[in-house]
Every structure is written in C-alpha cells, then in structure tokens.
Design a protein around this nucleic acid. Structure first.
Lengths: 132, 132
DNA sequence: ACATCTAGATGTGTTATACATATAGATGAT
DNA sequence: ATCATCTATATGTATAACACATCTAGATGT
C-alpha cells in the first residue's frame, strides 16, 4: 500500500471496499490519477484535463488540487520535477508511478460500484417523486 | 429554505448547483428522503429501505442515520412521533413534510448531475486504464 | 496601469460519513 | 437460565474531501 501504513482512500478500515462515505465519495483523486495516466502534466494542466474529462461539470479547486498532488507524491503515487527555463511562473511536472497506475485500477472498481449505487438511488428517487 | 439560514446540502454557498464535494457527495440524505417519500417509517425501517433500494450495496450506519433524522426534523424536513404501545423498544415514526418533498426534488437534480459526472469519470478512467 | 490568465501555495471551516460504544426490549438457540 | 442476535434508538469522536479565502509572482491583453 502506498505510503506508511495508510490504506487507500477507496477502502474501509478493514481493507475492503465498503461503504461509500467519507473519503469513498472522493472524485478529485481518481480524476487526477486519470489525467496523469494519459500523460505527464503540470498542475494547472491537470486541472484543465479534469474540466475536459467531465465536460466542464467539475472545476477542481486549485488549493485542494496542489495539496492532493503533494500528498500523492508523499505516498509514492506520483513524482514531480521542476521544469527549467520557460517563461511565466515556475512550473512543476507530475507523472504517475507504477503504484499510481495500480491505485487507479483500484479506483476504477470503486467508481463503478458508486456508479451502480447512484443509479439505483436516482431510480428510487425518480419513482417516489413521480408518485406525486 | 428549510431551517434557519441554512442552504441545502446539494447547493454551494451561492445557492447554485456547483461543485460536487463536501456535502454534495452525500448519499444518506437523499436516500432517507426517498425512503420516507414512499411511506412513513421508523428509523430502523428507513435503514432497511435504504439497503433494499441500493440492492444491499449501502448499509447506513445507524449512528449517522438517527443524527440525520434529528437534523432533518430540526430543519422542518421531517416530523416524528413516538409510537404508543407495541412490544420491543420504543419506536419513533418519521414522515416527510411538504418541504421534505420539495427538498427531494432538488436532490434529484443534483443526483442526476453527479451521475453524469461519475459516468464521465468512469469512462475516462477506463480509457486510460485500457491503454496499458 | 489595470484586469485577467497562468502557476503554485497555505490557512481555515464544514460536512458526511466511519467507527466505537451504549441502553434496552424482544426472539431464538443451547 | 444463559447467551447470541435482532430490533430500536442514541452519543462521542475521528477522518477526509472538499469549499472558500487569500496569497505571491510571471505573463498577456486592453
């Protein structure tokens, strides 16, 4: 498991896929991993990729995005290097590690399950809302 | 808006449907509202309804469930009465108010949007995971 | 000169769970 | 009888994912 004794955010305390609450409702982490799996990028590009991949429905908060990138790096899930030269503010290039690709596969399982739950919930809500 | 100056959990600070993070990732509240829109029920039954409507994928934590029911009552979204007689521990019956039905309609909008986002995210993750 | 975008960053607050633990009334198994 | 399990409600505490605010600094466009 990436990082020191920390379980994946898509897992419960006992290491299983379980409830879909705190941490398990996360969107930002899988979105970041997906953006970087495509190609290495700097932070601001990751933010734009996320906007693209969700057709503009999600606009990641840069505060949280950079914090997450730092944490993922601490956990060995991504690596980064400062880019030399170039104009404008200094930029940092991020890339997934092998562990990061592995983690993304786990997220896929989790996201599919949440998709199912959400579908079931939407259908249930539609049923009772239509009754009025 | 139900309750004193508190926006709905499916809305951002500016009253719009916006990001899908904290509070906006909620599943328990719409599930509870859907369960009670069907018929009034006591707490433990609501918990079972939620398990049924998500085909066993979600098992609501009773600690959080009862806390949420209390908060929804404080906000005028549900009402409750203790049931007289009956065997076993004392039970409390919950029912939606008109405001609760209204809130549920709002949740439907929000859940549909999250469903779209999740579908897009799953598709994006599938695309990059398949590239390996 | 100012607004806006790019690029990265820290501080703080809120909320939805998760996890633990508790009391109490029943039923079922041994 | 005793214990496990279910029913029914509840409080305490911890964690994590954002939201929101604010900041520095280098560019571009008006």
């Amino acid at each position: 498991m990436p990082g020191q004794g920390r379980r994946r955010r898509c897992e419960a305390a006992d290491g299983t896929h379980r409830q879909l609450g705190r941490g398990r409702g996360a969107l930002l982490e899988p979105a970041v991993l997906a953006a970087l799996a495509d190609s290495e990028a700097h932070g601001y590009d990751v933010r734009k990729s996320i906007e693209d991949m969700t057709s503009g429905l999600v606009s990641a908060d840069s505060g949280g995005l950079y914090r997450l990138l730092r944490r993922l790096e601490d956990d060995g899930v991504v690596v980064s290097t400062w880019v030399e030269g170039g104009s404008g503010p200094q930029r940092r290039e991020y890339a997934l590690t092998a562990e990061g690709r592995e983690l993304l596969a786990h997220w896929l399982d989790h996201l599919r399950e949440r998709e199912r739950v959400l579908s079931l919930l939407v259908a249930a809500v539609e049923r009772v809302v239509a009754k009025d």
